[in-house]
Design a protein around this nucleic acid. Structure first.
Length: 295
DNA sequence: TTCCAGGGTCCTA
DNA sequence: TAGGACCATGGA
């Protein structure tokens, strides 16, 4: 485990001597869209609950969080049953240049989110930016999700049954409205996301790509962030940029996927998140420097 | 005004 | 099988 002791007091869970868990990295790495940076850490809504996460020195604080909340929801959600030391050790043979980026983002953990929510969010993510995706998802939850303490839960497939393509369009989904409408219909009609867990990776990937709006990249995101396929390596524009800088400009999605599988092995998805966080952070720093020069 | 974003789909060669 | 056009939208 990546913490030495857990203490429950006053509806809080205190994880002592926490490792491989930096809240900013976990939430700012683009794997989830229902979070907000607040003065004391991050507020998130997941699994129908609202939670505040903060870190004081080497203690991670989850609030409100009872013993039942932790062992029933958050331990699994934050992937706290996995030892990320073992994951990081498995990358020790990777190329030095890639390892620098990966070490920068090594406070990232792969969240184990709900498959339906992850599926809808990543269909919305296509050719979109994180700020805008967050806005659309929030409006979707407010319009159709159940009210919970402090916000709105992500809607269930049943709650989206009568939502039309025009309704999705009105939320700002743009051309993805048709994909969302068709995918929800397929899921209501019996397409079982949970069933994919028992499949081999390539079979699960082919299967989930039957859903409209789900191509190779979105499929890998859903498999990695909600269905426990930790080997999935989503190739988006940022990761392509990072890998092309390393492999050469002619590197294609297929060659990057093949390379990642060989280089990073069964934990390729974790390596991908480390790299994603790194390249985006570097780009933000560049923008910040440019802004400073203009002032 | 143009470019870009956690891309997918469809058409053509 | 690969490459390219097109699709909505809002922030930079």
């Amino acid at each position: 485990m990546d913490y030495n002791e857990i203490i429950f007091e006053k509806k809080k869970a205190l994880l002592k001597e926490i490792r491989h868990f930096e809240p900013a990295q976990v939430f700012e790495c683009g794997q989830c869209f229902r979070f907000e940076k607040v003065c004391n850490g991050y507020d998130i809504i997941a699994c129908g609950k609202k939670l505040n996460i903060s870190r004081q020195d080497d203690t991670l604080i989850l609030s409100p969080c009872t013993k039942e909340d932790f062992y029933g929801t958050w331990q699994r959600y934050f992937d706290l049953e996995r030892d990320y030391n073992i994951v990081c050790e498995s990358f020790s043979g990777a190329d030095e240049r890639l390892r620098i980026g990966m070490e920068y983002g090594s406070g990232v953990r792969i969240l184990r989110q709900e498959p339906f929510e992850t599926c809808i969010c990543f269909i919305i993510s296509a050719n979109n930016n994180i700020g805008r995706i967050k806005g659309i998802v929030e409006r979707l939850c407010r319009a159709y999700g159940s009210k919970i303490e402090g916000g709105y839960a992500f809607p269930t497939p049943e709650q989206l049954r009568n939502v039309t393509q025009e309704d999705y369009f009105a939320l700002g989904c743009g051309y993805r409205a048709a994909y969302l409408h068709k995918t929800v219909a397929m899921i209501l009609d019996g397409f079982e996301l949970e069933k994919l867990r028992g499949m081999e990776y390539h079979q699960a990937r082919e299967e989930i790509m039957r859903l409209p709006g789900v191509g190779p990249k979105v499929a890998d995101c859903i498999l990695l962030f909600s269905l426990d396929f930790i080997c999935a390596f989503p190739v988006d524009v940022w990761v392509t940029r990072a890998m092309q800088a390393y492999m050469g400009q002619k590197a294609t999605r297929k060659s990057i996927e093949t390379y990642a599988k060989e280089e990073f092995g069964p934990y390729a998805g974790v390596a991908q998140q480390y790299l994603f966080f790194y390249v985006r952070s570097m780009e933000r720093l560049k923008s910040f420097d440019k802004t400073k020069k203009c002032l």
